[in-house]
Design a binder for these strands. Structure first.
Lengths: 419, 419
DNA sequence: CGTGATTTGTTTATCGGTTGAATTATTTGG
DNA sequence: CCAAATAATTCAACCGATAAACAAATCACG
């Protein structure tokens, strides 16, 4: 496992292809059974799993035995009595087995998050600190220190950390290399190398740290928080920068090199306002948080990010005309971009996250107006625009959740590790 | 097979999942072996296939036997002698087994195309006729009539048609329903229903007809014509309308409902020129063929499409200033859009097809300028812009090729059909 | 020209995983 | 208390892949 990530120059000519040995059947069916139990509305019995998956009861029993032995499942005895016959043993995801550790480095805080298989957040810590002023190495060391305490907390609660994912607000290319994080002032930081050997990250023999873009993980966080929601959507993280996480059929779309979703630099007015990126007319100078604050006449420079948004919502609720106008203008610009995304990808749902989430009430109308005006297919394939359910935690939650998700989708890997 | 297509309201809650029986191993490994032989630069031996796929020689032998019996492979005796040992039997895709039948309905022509497993075009017919003036039913009947002759031609050459795909210049939703084909004047045409029972389409017991958007199939055609090219790209079909086919990792990306790639209506100048779609500032009134012709002062209305483009290239080669300016402006608008696609999807390659292909020499510079100016990640992940290798045939070739492709990727389905 | 080395391809015994039927376990209803 | 019903386990059989032995066909070299 992991080999496709460590070999970055194999994507052009050769299609990867593994032979299917008999163990592959087991791998597949273990995942099938576990996923089914994870998605079931109430604890299913082995027999139920058998009928709905199409496997035999015998097979399901054998597979469930393995999953129980690997601390991925728990039997819950009292299934709600229904009719005659021997009562079923309910199966649920274990809350004492593997857990995912999510880390986040952002402009003004560090965060950790520990999530167990059931999706419950078992530990969550946020550490406010300005990270623009410190070097990448110290920033990384600090977050790794926080990871140490999260790990001991995990051990305390009888959990095993199955993997660690770090969210970073920047461009991340394969194998933990942060190419550019403008708001942190980072450029070409090799996270894996810096943190190699740190006890919070890589206890000997453990899965290596994965580094991923914050907006991508926030989208995964939303998927995690609303498992019954749509399986294909775009999650837009509106902060100072604007990023998008694209989820297609339940899987994060990363693009050829992991740089997908740079929605903040789609053009909404070529030749218009200058952008930090050097181009003109990007979305960011029209719908970024700073643009909205400026349009509303709120000086956000001296405030922490959350407070500025709070003041904005207060003004908008009071009907302040400048604020409402600024939000409508931002929403229109955003809508032009969202319409482009929908035209291109035929996405069903657009989720407004980050600072946009509390502002959805005012942003949605202009966004929807642009969609209906610009998307020809909206007639047959209506597009839903809604607010994210997670707040600023989205990225850490998504980071931790992505580990859990991986364990559920590839339980054989975990079982191989536990023996 | 085909069940996911016929049930359109299952995409939200339930993840589809089939159990892996032992036959699944066979299915997978058959595909593995066949794909390997298809992709090999020269006819490989069973032993070679075994070592490179990781399967045993015994297993490969058994699988190859099945593939030979199903007319998917042929043995070619004289492999170029190399060293000592028993000489190898080369394996190549059969040219006497299944073939793909592609059909196309366009504004001013009908076309058919027959491609065998090796990728060779075995039959190709284009029938010029103005289809804007006839009803959908007669248009469809005519193309089906052409399909009859293609089928008899196939039988004549010892080929079996494994599937039929129809390319249509419009929005196609699941199961053969053409929602809208503006240039044909179609709306909500149920192709499958109209052609049910026609001998050219559905001989009893055969695979049903598949209908697909022309731009999507043109992209697949490009993939088919350049198998060694990139596995992720966007193919832009520039005609009167502008469509894009998105290929990600060798597979067509259709979007949630098959409406992806409507690139012609991405906004390049919100509030700018009015578009046929009702919105303002779409790409089409800036970079569509009609806009380029108008800018160059060429009246294309009385000419067939190909002749207008030919005149355009002649003028551009002569250095006509109006033409060059028109092409640069169109290229800039196109570049803004392409930059959006790249920012969003992190695509490696952009292919200019349709009428754009012969104009690439003039369009590429402004397109590339916009990409470098607007795509932040272009530094690490350079984007190639090139002309399509196929001309107007791209869509039919892609249609026929997609059938062949499906047989190669899912040989077990074909073997089950042949017994 | 014959023998050994070498590589290809097939045969055979074995193993792993799923299946299906029979078996055991545990409840409800009369 | 017994029959019906449902849950879970056990066991022989099957199917596909594997590994090793074997047969086939060529080259190299004495």
């Amino acid at each position: 496992m992991q080999q496709s990530r460590s070999n970055p120059d194999r994507h052009r000519p050769a299609p990867p292809a593994h032979p299917a040995r008999q163990a592959s059947l087991r791998t597949h069916n273990l995942a099938l059974v576990l996923r089914h139990i994870a998605d079931a509305p109430r604890p299913p019995s082995r027999a139920e799993v058998a009928t709905t998956t199409g496997l035999t009861r015998a097979t399901v029993s054998a597979l469930v035995d393995d999953l129980l032995a690997g601390s991925l499942l728990t039997e819950v005895s009292p299934a709600p009595r229904t009719g005659a016959g021997r009562p079923a043993q309910g199966l649920v995801l274990a809350d004492h087995g593997p857990a995912g550790l999510g880390l986040e480095i952002n402009v003004d805080y560090l965060a950790t998050c520990l999530i167990d298989l059931t999706g419950t957040v078992r530990h969550h810590a946020v550490h406010r600190v300005d990270l623009r002023t410190v070097s990448p190495t110290t920033a990384l060391t600090r977050v790794a220190d926080l990871a140490v305490t999260a790990r001991t907390e995990a051990a305390h609660q009888g959990l095993t950390v199955a993997g660690t994912v770090l969210a970073v607000p920047g461009l991340v290319s394969g194998d933990g290399l942060v190419r550019l994080a403008p708001n942190l002032g980072w450029r070409d930081v090799d996270v894996t190398a810096v943190l190699a050997g740190h006890p919070g990250i890589a206890p000997p023999g453990m899965t290596p740290l994965l580094v991923e873009n914050e907006a991508n993980l926030a989208a995964l966080g939303e998927l995690h928080a609303a498992p019954t929601g749509p399986r294909s959507f775009v999650h837009i993280s509106g902060e100072i920068g604007i990023g998008a996480g694209i989820v297609l059929d339940g899987a994060l779309f990363r693009g050829a090199r992991g740089f997908s979703g740079e929605i903040g630099h789609l053009a909404v007015e070529p030749g218009g306002r200058p952008c930090r990126c050097g181009a003109r007319g990007c979305l960011e100078p029209y719908a970024g948080l700073e643009a909205i604050l400026a349009g509303a006449g709120v000086s956000g420079a001296d405030l922490p990010a959350g407070a500025a948004v709070a003041r904005l919502t207060r003004l908008a609720e009071a009907g302040d005309p400048a604020t409402c106008r600024a939000l409508t203008e931002a929403g229109t610009a955003l809508g032009v971009t969202v319409a482009a995304v929908v035209n291109l990808l035929d996405i069903e749902t657009v989720i407004l996250g980050g600072a946009y989430a509390p502002l959805t009430r005012w942003l949605r109308p202009p966004v929807e107006a642009e969609i209906t005006g610009r998307v020809l297919t909206a007639t047959w394939s209506p597009v839903a625009v809604r607010a994210a359910v997670l707040g600023a935690d989205a990225a850490v939650v998504g980071a931790a959740g992505s580990v859990v998700r991986r364990v559920v989708e590839e339980p054989a890997d975990w079982l191989a590790r536990t023996g």
